[in-house]
């Protein structure tokens, strides 16, 4: 048993983020051992949910995220112990799939702690399977006045909380399609069998993930 496995008191965990970038042209050469998720243009965030009653939303620099809208995060937790989720908090007024600003939503892309257990040593594929089991597989979202079907978002049981879908092939075509939407910056590719390492330092878990981003005013490969 890992000595960090028990997670019963709040300790900040840095999110596992991709630092290494590749040219989008190389995506077609990546094999089956990779799993892709859309890269969203928001603020990278870590959500610490303690049981059913309290939560803290932090940025990737160990600071509490400012300017959030209230969301029922605690309803995501399926136990009275800690759950820690990594995701993107959308606060940059980017346009979503329907061409309208898509703001103040949280998109989950990884799970680090579940039922008070820090998932160190658990593969990305297994964590992803767990996320799918926990948060369903519905691409549709029904609001008071509308029903929306998303191409690259999975709706959860909690309003304004979504999950990033996972893709197993055709990364190049997927990239070209996804970057048409303002909100989507490109793709993050993660090794399916990579085991989660402790995240107590800012640079962690970087050896098993890469990103391919679309060019912007400030970024070009």
């Amino acid at each position: 048993m890992n000595i960090f496995e028990q997670y019963s008191d709040f300790k900040y965990i840095y999110p596992p983020r991709a630092e290494v970038a590749i040219a989008p042209g190389l995506l077609s050469g990546l094999g089956k051992e990779w799993i892709a998720q859309p890269k969203y243009n928001g603020s990278c965030a870590v959500l610490f949910i303690n049981g059913q009653s309290e939560y803290k939303l932090f940025n990737r620099k160990n600071e509490e995220l400012s300017l959030q809208n209230p969301i029922q995060y605690t309803a995501l937790n399926d136990s009275d112990k800690y759950m820690v989720l990594c995701g993107e908090y959308l606060n940059k007024n980017k346009y979503g799939e329907n061409g309208k600003p898509f703001n103040h939503k949280f998109i989950i892309w990884d799970i680090l702690v579940w039922r008070g257990r820090y998932l160190i040593g658990v593969t990305f594929e297994s964590r992803l399977t767990l996320l799918y089991e926990l948060f369903g597989t519905s691409r549709g979202f029904v609001s008071e006045n509308d029903m929306i079907i998303f191409n690259h978002l999975i709706a959860t049981q909690v309003e304004n909380v979504f999950m990033a879908p996972a893709y197993l092939d055709n990364y190049s075509e997927l990239y070209n399609e996804i970057i048409q939407t303002d909100l989507y910056e490109g793709l993050i590719l993660k090794k399916a069998n990579a085991k989660l390492e402790p995240g107590f330092r800012e640079r962690n878990n970087q050896s098993w993930q890469i990103k391919a981003r679309k060019p912007t005013l400030n970024y070009n490969f």
Partner: peptide
């Protein structure tokens, strides 16, 4: 420059695998 970045990415991924 672009190829350098791609090789850097490859180096980083392979280095991570070998180190593990």
């Amino acid at each position: 420059k672009s190829q350098c970045k791609n090789w850097d990415a490859k180096l980083s991924i392979e280095e991570g695998f070998i180190k593990d």
